[in-house]
Each structure stands twice: as structure tokens, then as C-alpha cells.
Design a protein around this nucleic acid. Sequence first.
DNA 1: TTTTTGTAATATTTAATAAGTATGAATTAT
DNA 2: ATAATTCATACTTATTAAATATTACAAAAA
Lengths: 295, 295
Amino acid sequence: MNYQIELRHFIYFLAVAEELHYRKAAEKLFISQPGLSTQIKQMEEILQTQLFVRDKKKVSLTPAGEFLKGEVEFILNHLEQTQKQLKLIGDGHSGEIRIGFLGSAMQNVVPKLLLDMKKKYPLVHTSLEELSNKAQISAIFRDKLDLGFVRLARVPKGLKIKPVFEDTFSLVLPKDYPLDEKGFKGIHQVSQDDFILFSQDYSPLYYDTVMSICEDGGFTPNVSHKSVHAQTIFKLVENNLGIAIIPTALQYGFQMEVKFIELKKIKQRAILSAVWKEDNRNPALQNCIDLLLKE
Amino acid sequence: MNYQIELRHFIYFLAVAEELHYRKAAEKLFISQPGLSTQIKQMEEILQTQLFVRDKKKVSLTPAGEFLKGEVEFILNHLEQTQKQLKLIGDGHSGEIRIGFLGSAMQNVVPKLLLDMKKKYPLVHTSLEELSNKAQISAIFRDKLDLGFVRLARVPKGLKIKPVFEDTFSLVLPKDYPLDEKGFKGIHQVSQDDFILFSQDYSPLYYDTVMSICEDGGFTPNVSHKSVHAQTIFKLVENNLGIAIIPTALQYGFQMEVKFIELKKIKQRAILSAVWKEDNRNPALQNCIDLLLKE
DNA sequence: TTTTTGTAATATTTAATAAGTATGAATTAT
DNA sequence: ATAATTCATACTTATTAAATATTACAAAAA
């Protein structure tokens, strides 16, 4: 008596509305004609609206039926589309990946990944956010980020980390500094200068690495300024407030009056790593990581 | 084995997606928990997509499930509306338009529209609901509302927005405040007062506009209270807890012991806009919009 | 530790109901 | 007339949703 309308009703209705003929519609649906009759009748009862006029020898739609036909076509199409879309998302071919990164990852790793993703999974959207190491780790834990690009040696339990880019370090010097690529023999030559570094808090690994570079050169650097922005560091160097050591990749993309000397002979490397949560449920993420690590 | 998805599945799914708890969802649906479990499982099989993660002790949605939740909300709302429309058409009327509005739209725009509609389309029913900007946008997206009246500068993709009423702002002052229309020279005269505003969350555009009015007056307002109801704001002003700036139209329709000074010389205007979904399928809506925009 | 509590998943049975068969009534065509 | 075609009704069968009872597992409490 008090049934609920179901999609089956809509499918049957549409067949009758198209054929305007119960037997033919029933054949198309591979059910018996009486079954179809009762279902349509039931449907009219549930909706409390007459949908067809059975006018002795021919069936036709009422205005309400005409309206419903349009709606049912829309609903069934929309449903089909939804199912397709759903399957894609479930298989990781669609959806969204939220990526966090350090500014320095924007020089090569991240853009390359975005291009590869777009090529292989054009339906996957990405959202990008520049964040500190710490903020990325925390965001990944809270499931606010799927993938991060950090400079860290290790990460808390539950997260996975893989190096994705290894870079040399470079000295950043003011344009008029009395030393150039040719004259450069070793890091000890700048031991008397003030140093401008990324703050320890922002990237402990970077900080420790730079310290060890200087130690290997036989001195402890005099750190005059700390910053979290490459832009700021360059600006300070430009204004003769000190010199810096940065991952080489960072020298591209800024318009600055400074010069660089790449520290090729030094063993330390600036390592950028990808981080993600082991049990992340985003199906698109695995595809993304596979793409990132495949080479 | 090879079943077909049914609306029942969607209704069950939505309950679980909302409660994230099988037993509670089952109770809400007045069915048994095992029945619900099997139906959801069947649904996942039919769709060939995992929708929930049952993580021993807690249930959560997969990205695919998250996507489906939004779609199901839309589909079920649309269906409900379709049934209502169908019944009206079957009964010889011609449909229903569901309108949402901010309280301030009730002073002129909405009543006028209702009168015009009644005159031109007497068989079209309207349902009205007072909602915040945000709630209207969300309801329009989920097909719970056909037309909204908001104060927003822009709306998400897929929605259309058109200004329909431009209003000045007015100062709201306590009855005994030592300033009146004659003595009023500019907004700077009230720069020392506390301000009571509609909350930023409720109407960001209003908030920003009031801020810019004060900035133009050379000060940053000291906001002491925020509210979402004009009634409350007037009450607070009446009790000398501060002064307010509101769209002028709001001053009508309330019985309050406050006085108003219209800020005629100020360039900012309170703009009320109509919003609707581009691909809304309600046939009565287009007529309504035409009527609304024709002047 | 063991017990209790709260959770979802199985197994089995029962009840609801969609769909089938057979048939009838009404209409048109021959 | 008679036959053929249409949809509706009565009744039966087969399918399947949903209920009951139970299990399995984990977390919280004793």
C-alpha cells in the first residue's frame, strides 16, 4: 500500500512512455506485460498522479506524464554519469590530490610531477600549498594533505618518506664580492663572513647540513640572520648583509643581484623527499606516488 | 548476483554516510543493522567501488563515497521536488518555486516578486525560507532551493547571480544619541563608538562593505558585537550597547526604540542579488526570473 | 589479566513482493 | 460474426529484503 518509488519504476515508465505500448515496452524490458501493467499502476498510486491515458486501443501520456518523462530521462542519465564518475574516483583515475611543498621544490620536482599527472591522469585535480616542513607533516597526519615535499632526514611513524631529488649546495655572494668560480678553492675562504641561513626551525636538516659543510671547512659559521624565504635571503645578500649557502636549484626563478658558486666538490647534498601517510585512502595518491618514484 | 542499484540503496547509503555508524543509521531507517550492512555491501558490489572504510571501531567514507554522498543528496532532493511538481501538474496547477532569502530581502524585493508571480502565474506555488547566504548557496546546489536572495559579490561556478536591488546604508543609533540627521556631517563623527555588525560569516560582503565605509571615514571600527538577526542588532543598539550600519531597507518592519540616519552621501551600496542554478530543471523558474529581471 | 560493552559481519529463517501464467474484457479489422 | 490485438485482473511462484540469532573483534573497565 505505502510503497516507495524505485528506479525500477522509472525504467519501466520510460519504456512505456517511449513505446506508448505495453506489450512492446514489456518485450524491450524482458518482462511480462501484466507485470509491467501492475508496476505502472502501482507507480501511479505511489505518485498519486495519473501518468498515462489508456484510451481504448491507444496509450498516451498525460501532461504530468509528459513532465515526468523529461525528468526521468534526466535522472537516469545523471545517474549513469554519476556511476561512471564514481568508478573513476574509486580506481584513482579521478579525484583530487592535495600537495604541500617547500618553495625550493617548485623549481623542478613539483612542476614535473604535475605535468606527468596531467598527461597520465588528466581528470585528477591537484591543489597546491607552500608550507614549512613541520606544517606539512602535521597536515599529512590530520589528513589535510595527501603528499608533501620536505627536506627532512626522518618522519614520525605512520608516514613514508622517499628521496626524490638530490642537489648540490651553492654559495650565494653579493655581485661585487672579491671571489668567483675561478678563484674559488674551498669553503674556508669565506669563513670570516656572516652567514644568512634558513631558520633551524623551518628546516633542521638544512641547518645541520650547512653546519657540517662549514665544519668540514674547518670553521664554525657566524650566523647573522635567519629567514624562511629564499627571496629574503637573496635580498639580504644583495645588500651586503652576509653570504648564504642554499640548495643549488633555488638560484633559478629569482631576479637578484647576487652571484652563485656551486659547491660541486663538497660531499653534502640537499635532499628533497616526498612524504605521505601509509594508510592514506585516496586512491589517486598511489598512482601519483608510482609516477613520482618510477624513474 | 547482477542486481540493479535502487533508490533504497541511496537512502540507506545516505543514512550511513551521515551517521557514520551502522546501528544508529539502521535505527534512523527503522530497519535492522544486519539488513543495512548487507544492503550497503551489495551496493558496493553493484557499483564496483568501495564506499566506506570499516576500520574496526569506526566507519568513514572513501573519496568515492564522499563524492557519492553529494550526488545522492542532490538526486534525492531533486526527486522529492519532482514528485511535488508532478502532483501539482497532475492537479492542474503548474509547479512550485522554492525561494530562499535573507531577512532584509523581505522588505521589498520578495513581496513584490510574490505579488507579480501571483498575478501572472496564479497556479504556481511558492515556498519561502529565510536562510543565510551560505545556506542558500548550498541548498541551491543540492537542489533544495530554486532561487535565492543573497548579499554576495560572487558565487561558485554553475550558479548565476544578478543584482536586483540596490540600497543605501543607514546608521542605527539609540533614541537619545546626541546626533541627528541635521547635525550629521560624516561617518567620522561616530568613530569612537562601538559597532554591532552582522557576523562576517553570515555575510562577508556586508562586513567588508561596512569596513570600507569606516575606512573611507578615516577610522577602523571597534566591533563589540556580531549577530545574524536584525532584530538582535536593533535591540543591542536600543540598549546602548553600540551603534550599527545596516542596509536602509531593514529599518522598516521593526518596532524599535532607535533612530536612523541614512548615509546618502556615501558611495557604498548594499546590493541584494538573486542566485539560481544555471541548469535548474524547474520549468516555472525561468518565468520567475524573467519577471524578476524585466524592469 | 578477565570481563563487559559496543561495534559490524555471518548464517539462517521469514515475510514481502516482483514477476510469471492464465485468463478476461474491450476494441478494431477482416 | 470471428479473429486478432490490446491492457487489466486473479492467482501462483520465485526472488530477495529484512528479521532473529549469533559470531567476531576491539576497546574500555573491573
